[in-house]
């Protein structure tokens, strides 16, 4: 447990310090301030979001990012198509998706990611399942969501990725 914590602290600290460097540029005069900022951010981060057990799988993460990019474009195009169409093709309604991820940050990440999926918007929780509002309930929403969830579970290094 302690090693997990230390590893997460190191990784996050490095990440925050890197972000600082990218914002301000590599000026030696700013390094000390950057270390202080990174330390403060790391401490806050570890308190707010204690490190979990899983390790990120970078290949899966890359695939997820790629799909996320595609989906956000598709989502935008989808809305644009419906909004600009003369007939206004909307069949709004709710779809219940029985999410496999337990409640927590991972599940929230899933919600955030799928909020850019074409035609879906998480609008609440219903007895452990996510409640999605859809622009068109006749689209195969649940199938798309299941694919996304699988990708996310793999990327997060989840243990139950082949349910």
């Amino acid at each position: 447990m302690r090693t997990i914590f230390m590893r997460a602290a190191m990784a996050r600290g490095a990440g925050f310090f890197g972000f600082w460097l990218l914002l301000i540029g590599p000026n030696p005069a700013d390094l000390v301030a950057g270390l202080c900022a990174a330390a403060a951010a790391t401490w806050t981060s570890l308190r707010l979001l204690p490190p979990g057990g899983g390790r990120l799988r970078y290949a899966a993460l890359a695939r997820l990012a790629l799909r996320f990019g595609q989906e956000s474009i598709m989502g935008g195009v989808d809305v644009a198509r419906r909004a600009l169409s003369v007939r206004l093709p909307l069949r709004p309604g709710f779809v219940v998706y029985p999410v496999r991820l337990p409640p927590g940050p991972a599940c929230n990440t899933f919600g955030a990611l799928t909020s850019v999926l074409p035609g879906t918007l998480p609008a609440g929780v219903d007895h452990g399942a996510l409640l999605y509002h859809c622009l068109d309930v006749e689209q195969p929403v649940a199938v798309q969501l299941a694919i996304d969830e699988g990708l996310l579970i793999r990327a997060l290094g989840g243990t139950h990725d082949d349910t």
């Binding site: 202080c36 900022a37 990174a38 981060s45 707010l48 979001l49 929230n108 919600g111």
Partner: peptide, 21 residues
């Protein structure tokens, strides 16, 4: 485990970096 808490877990560390920057 709600959405609000999620945002409040992710954003503040980044906000600290930006604010101090």
């Amino acid at each position: 485990d709600g959405v609000l808490a999620y945002l409040a877990r992710l954003l503040p560390p980044i906000g600290i970096i930006v604010g101090l920057y």
